[in-house]
């Protein structure tokens, strides 16, 4: 009798062990998302109210100029950030893959920004791009007295400083992924192409780069995920300014939900961000998991 209870317990053990995590995920991830979703349909300001008011927060959100600036900035930042990181990352990976001396050291240098927090990166670049004492001063002292660089305080250009710092931080990571991809390519295929008399540029263009398609795919997913969540970098670099010219959705949400205490409005913007990320991630995870089952 005792033994069978112990047996039963033993059989349930895996489920029991997992239970706290499952509970936590259900509450802290899914429950919280539902809560935020619900609040986004209410007229909550400082404190949450729970009467359903329909979609008016979303209507207000998409009628809000600042929100559109944030979305437009995300489009600019996201596309440039992804494109430049991938282009540079691929270039550096291919160059590093040419039997380079001190490859390890060079790779380590390219990758160290990944270990820094975006706040540190932002602080460093804020200083580098300082309109009077930074790069501009450097160029002046080199003799280029006509050189001006005021992007940090120029509301037309401030979002591009975020691109500069973001690219600096993430390129090494993309390079590492491409390098791993390059090392995984079967040499036999390449040798066969060489025997057929194909030149190196042609081999890269027609064989190697196309076979890196999965790496392109995951890089784009990861980088767009980083871009949508970007918050720290903007805060440290420009604080969203001048004015709100370099706002991103993440800083927008923070400003309204926490500084201005407009809970419902902030929740609505958070839900839009959530929808955007899920639109990218869920199909990706689905294809990954399915791919594994077929393999």
């Amino acid at each position: 009798m005792m033994k069978s209870i112990a047996d039963k317990l033993e059989r349930q053990l895996p489920r029991l062990v997992l239970a706290p995590t499952v509970l936590a995920i259900m509450v802290f991830v899914y429950g919280f998302i539902l809560w935020t979703a619900w609040v986004s349909f209410t007229n909550s300001t400082l404190l949450p109210k729970y009467e359903f008011q329909g979609f008016f927060q979303y209507v207000k959100l998409f009628g809000n100029d600042r929100w559109w600036v944030a979305c437009q900035n995300l489009a600019i930042f996201g596309s440039l950030f992804i494109f430049i990181c991938i282009a540079l990352g691929l270039l550096l990976a291919i160059l590093l893959d040419q039997r380079i001396r001190c490859e390890g050291a060079i790779r380590a240098v390219y990758l160290y920004p990944m270990a820094l927090s975006f706040i540190v990166t932002g602080t460093a670049w804020k200083w580098m791009l300082n309109p009077s004492l930074g790069l501009e001063r450097l160029m002046h002292q080199f003799g280029f007295t006509g050189f001006t660089f005021d992007w940090l305080v120029n509301s037309e250009m401030s979002i591009y400083t975020v691109v500069i710092a973001g690219v600096w931080q993430s390129t090494g990571f993309v390079m590492a992924m491409f390098l791993a991809g390059l090392r995984g390519i079967d040499d036999a295929i390449i040798q066969a192409a060489q025997v057929d008399g194909a030149g190196l540029p042609r081999i890269y263009r027609c064989i190697i780069i196309p076979s890196l398609r999965p790496v392109f795919f995951s890089s784009i997913i990861i980088l767009s995920h980083i871009a949508i969540k970007s918050f720290d970098l903007v805060v440290a670099l420009t604080s969203g300014g001048p004015g709100y010219s370099s706002d991103l959705p993440a800083t927008f949400m923070y400003a309204f939900a926490f500084n201005r205490n407009r809970l419902g409005f902030g929740a609505a913007s958070a839900m839009v961000m959530f929808g955007a990320v899920m639109g990218i991630i869920v199909p990706y995870l689905y294809s990954e998991l399915r791919g594994k089952k077929h393999a």
Partner: peptide, 12 residues
Amino acid sequence: IGCFIPFQVILL
């Protein structure tokens, strides 16, 4: 999926 949610959605 919990790895990927934008944390803005759980902050409040």
